[in-house]
Design a protein around this nucleic acid. Sequence first.
DNA 1: GGCTCCAATCTTGTATGCAAGATCTGCATG
DNA 2: CATGCAGATCTTGCATACAAGATTGGAGCC
Lengths: 245, 245
Amino acid sequence: MANANTISSQVIDAILSQRLAPNTRLGEQDLAALFGCSRTIVREALVDLAARGIATVSPRRGWYLTEVDTEKARELYVAREIIETGLLRHLARRKQALPTAALDQIARHLDAQAEAVAGDDIPRRSYLLGDFHVCLANSLGNSVLAANLRDMTVLTTLFTMRHQTPHDAQRSYEEHVAVFEPLTRGDALAAEEAMRCHLSTWEEKVNKARDYAPVSALHTALTPAADLRGVNASLTDTAKKEPLL
Amino acid sequence: MANANTISSQVIDAILSQRLAPNTRLGEQDLAALFGCSRTIVREALVDLAARGIATVSPRRGWYLTEVDTEKARELYVAREIIETGLLRHLARRKQALPTAALDQIARHLDAQAEAVAGDDIPRRSYLLGDFHVCLANSLGNSVLAANLRDMTVLTTLFTMRHQTPHDAQRSYEEHVAVFEPLTRGDALAAEEAMRCHLSTWEEKVNKARDYAPVSALHTALTPAADLRGVNASLTDTAKKEPLL
DNA sequence: GGCTCCAATCTTGTATGCAAGATCTGCATG
DNA sequence: CATGCAGATCTTGCATACAAGATTGGAGCC
């Protein structure tokens, strides 16, 4: 019924929406049943996800969503800072304004974020706040870096979920606006600084997380926080039918 | 006999060594026979390469090495400049010297490059000159960006091969040294500037290449330049047995 | 009760068979 | 000679069967 591309896309969307946690098992048979196709297609999707570092296979034991350790998380945040500030710096060097169409696209994305932050659809909120960075890279005219950034965003999401760093959605949104506003004035350098500031706050969290022992999957499963109860509920047997949708 | 990983690695090595040109057909059956395994394994390797943008499948027609157009090449060069100068800039911001082990690793790679540039093993020379950038990113302590950079290097190689931009190996080597030398003095900012200079010369070439019509695979095959004769010879029927090795 | 070992079960690893679409070749026809 | 058509061939798409390792559960023994 479904092809490999839709399977991997749905897995990625589910991660960005924080509906799938790191170390989640991705059984070939389960996914095949869920998507109504054979293991061949599922394996194709899983190999794709593995190539992007999102899934990992343990021989003859099973596929699992990657568990990102603090060292890798550090690399990821450095990489994101380099790429995202670098894109804005590159824009500044070119000394030419961003096309109106690009600005509009970002503005529309920010509107959607504002709406999601005000509402109570937490998965959508998580998704949009992460997707903003990909959208920005795309608007800046570099699809190659945008694609890399998407995978990095997925991996950082896997890290922050595990370490339960409190994600202040309202603040993230405001910082996104702080990146966008200078762009409307053509001040890409100011936007770069705002972006560096935005990402460095995340980097601080990683450094803090290094001090804590990483929360195990079992631990989070058995001691659900109040705001996670809804997420964990979907893992019970009765609701297990379509965990990805 | 061989697993998917070795197949994709060998394809990548062959591209970096300029032994495989863009648009080269990667038939599942051919590769399966070549590596002594079934199409299943070959497909796994091809899906991996496709996820990294290196191979493309045309439904029911076949797999081919990606043909990189000028727009994508521009994005690739911008991406590489952002990442590689960004890594050095990040090093400069941290205001701490590169570990001796890292410097040694780069130095040893440069020695190998010098040897290859002096010798006549053109595939090895091509490989090392491209691999330097990956080695540098690794030495700078970011394996995530190093992996992304490897794929980008592969794609830029596919572009330059097609457009036959004359590759001055000696000059590339000297520019690599010019990046390394400031690092030994702890002057990462000077290294960043040298790297920007090194990459911008390539960017100029892309802008020039935009004016030319891209040379088709058939065209290069039928009008071999003197210095490419050895490469094309390996594509004749009698020597076709192991084009990757 | 606790420990060991073996069988049952579950997982991925790999090959293969068949289906279906694309291309190519050769023939018939104008 | 050009053109269109049809069969032959070659290609990937996908499902399935079987192999083999990993885990688990329980029976039997100490």
